[in-house]
Design a protein around this nucleic acid. Structure first.
Lengths: 244, 244
DNA sequence: AAGTGGTCTAGACCACCGC
DNA sequence: CGGTGGTCTAGACCACTTC
């Protein structure tokens, strides 16, 4: 607990503003002092004030409108964020062994649901892969993936023994939008067998779609035995990273 | 398609660096040119170069080490975010009726698990509430909540008919850290009865803890029938909001 | 000692908004 | 028109790492 070196000036100003908001002195919709007023009040340069307010704006605490002013954002963050980590790195970070068995790589004719999700016509040929991801040999995820060949034509020609499907996509087809849906489901007998789990136990089902420039790249359904996998995260509301 | 005004200089530099990384010209672990080198190459001021690299660092594309240099990050943004919305506003946004039945408000002696989660001693008296949240009359969430009385001493004296427990806490005890864990579980017979659902169907269990200044405010376990509730979100990867 | 990133200053020009 | 935020410059000092 040695005297911490004084925080950066822009951070001091950020803290000051956040405190005013949390204490209710500045209410949602209220106007903040302008940059030049803060320059005068705090004796900082405008660049420093601007950085503080810009970062608060990026964090959603305030709203800035050029030519008008800065305002306390409406309502507390009513929604919170859950971080979904990469399975392989998550497992390796725990110091465990990670392995991926690629069970199926094929082209199939898109059924109704898949066609709708990928935004292609029913019956169009799409790529399909099925993988089991293992932590220290135990299956933790059954990954059922469909890929839009219009977006990734060379997908079928990859050697997935070297680079698993999801890694290949992450590295080669950067996405700009992503959609997640989390469900609780009971596994089918086939799924339970592949996951080496009892049929009576529930699973977390994470369904994800990614887009690039408005077109769907891939639809993936990740099935996790609930006893072996939980989605979790811890966040600081102010945007600072949590170390430890 | 009117000629877009030239992007900001710092944005041009960000785009340049991202392109180099995506094209593989700069590989993970590679060292980027130093700020002063970029100043020379691009004819920008150091403040502008610094802003570009700082934002790339915040976005996880590069790693910066004072005194050493800037490096392409090892892993692409491997984790994505799932937004967890406020249940009541989510239901109302769908145009449905929202109702909350408060079944239990009591003080109980903290059992082992609850005491550990709230960071109090086993046997300490804590607040406990149990609520059923309904969408158009149908139960969608069973909320089992424990509150640390040291943090919210007046919690037990509230009129939860007017303001349900979670709303009261959101409005009166701002949190600065939050932890989420998502599980798939089977409901107990009692839980299934309160949720008016069959016992054989799985549930999503969202467990949340919130902190203020390092102390736990509340532990809440939200149990959702999987057939009536899914956790979902769509995000843009670049941090811009998705409108619509 | 030389190089790096982290921060800060005191100016500046611009587009935009509201009057 | 004056005020606002958005951006940019050309310097500067510092703590830190590497040699």
């Amino acid at each position: 607990m040695a005297g911490a070196p004084a925080a950066a000036l822009y951070q001091q100003l950020k803290d000051f503003v956040v405190r005013k908001i949390q204490e209710g002195v500045w209410q949602p919709g209220d106007r903040l002092p302008s940059e030049s007023e803060l320059v005068t009040q705090f004796g900082m340069s405008r660049m420093t004030v601007n950085r503080a307010l810009r970062e608060l704006s990026e964090q959603g605490r305030i709203v800035r409108v050029a030519g008008v002013g800065s305002f306390v954002a409406e309502d507390k963050p009513q929604s919170t964020l859950l971080q979904i980590a990469n399975l392989a790195s998550e497992i390796r970070q725990r110091g465990h062994d990670y392995r991926c068995d690629v069970l199926v790589v094929e082209r199939v004719s898109a059924a109704l649901e898949v066609a709708a999700a990928l935004d292609v016509r029913t019956g169009d040929s799409v790529f399909h892969t099925l993988c089991v991801h293992r932590e220290d040999g135990v299956p933790v995820q059954l990954e059922d993936r469909y890929v839009n060949p219009a977006m990734v034509p060379q997908f079928g020609a990859q050697d997935f023994a070297q680079l698993q499907p999801s890694e290949y996509l992450v590295r080669n087809v950067p996405f700009d939008q992503i959609e997640h849906v989390v469900d609780a489901v009971m596994p089918t007998p086939e799924q339970a067998a592949l996951l080496e789990m009892p049929v009576g136990e529930p699973c977390l089902l994470l369904t994800r779609r990614t887009w690039s420039r408005g077109a769907v790249i891939t639809l993936v359904r990740c099935l996790h035995p609930a006893t072996r996998y939980r989605l979790g995260s811890r966040f600081r509301a102010d945007g600072h990273p949590l170390n430890g």
